[in-house]
Design a binder for these strands. Sequence first.
DNA 1: AAGGTAAGTTTCGTTTTGGAACTATGGCAA
DNA 2: TTGCCATAGTTCCAAAACGAAACTTACCTT
Lengths: 112, 112
Amino acid sequence: MKWSDLSDNWCPVARALSIVGDRWTLLILRDCFLGMSRFEQFIESSGMTRHILADRLKRLVEAGILERKAYSTSPKRYDYVLTDKGQELAPALLTLRDWGKKHMPVRRTTSA
Amino acid sequence: MKWSDLSDNWCPVARALSIVGDRWTLLILRDCFLGMSRFEQFIESSGMTRHILADRLKRLVEAGILERKAYSTSPKRYDYVLTDKGQELAPALLTLRDWGKKHMPVRRTTSA
DNA sequence: AAGGTAAGTTTCGTTTTGGAACTATGGCAA
DNA sequence: TTGCCATAGTTCCAAAACGAAACTTACCTT
């Protein structure tokens, strides 16, 4: 079965994951909740490659989770901002954060 | 940057995603919360392929999210059951479920 | 002996990802 | 008015992950 077929799954968790459950997507949304909205900000913050980011942004906009708002017309430039639908993912991010804090300690690479 | 490098990220969301944020993993955990515990159950329920499931189960056991409990020794067979660490992912699944229910309606393929 | 069940493993061809370079558009400074 | 910088992508290629299906192992039933 293809991952993309999940969008029609009977299970709401599966449908949610069909758009938000792949590599990087939730990390972009985390950055949005931290106030970021631009391509280069996402790149620097997340460490993902440029063309994966471009792909994810497109998908998030198509899914109605982010909205693409021009902040410059001369060279066309856009802010990517959370829609209401996107805003409502906050609880999911927060529960993941709490779980990560509690159960995924930073194992420091014994340096120095 | 490699996806697997996220486990050392400063951000607890990123660290959580390093283990739980790839394709299929959260779907397996959903099945666990629905009471499933065996290989063939996961296969039938999720629609993923066998060797991907085998890989994910191994990673989840290594991460201490699932525990491998023998239910038969003659042919060695195991149940995969949630540890406490795994149980505590329930809120994350529930918030995703709620979001999916609200924002990802099943679009039925205009059949019949 | 033949077939069935459960849990993987292997193989192979297709997608997705990572890394880096390249393009487009305009601002600004020399 | 040429040259450099910034932003936001796009393109190319090699490496890794994935999907489908067949194969394996170990036992059990008929």
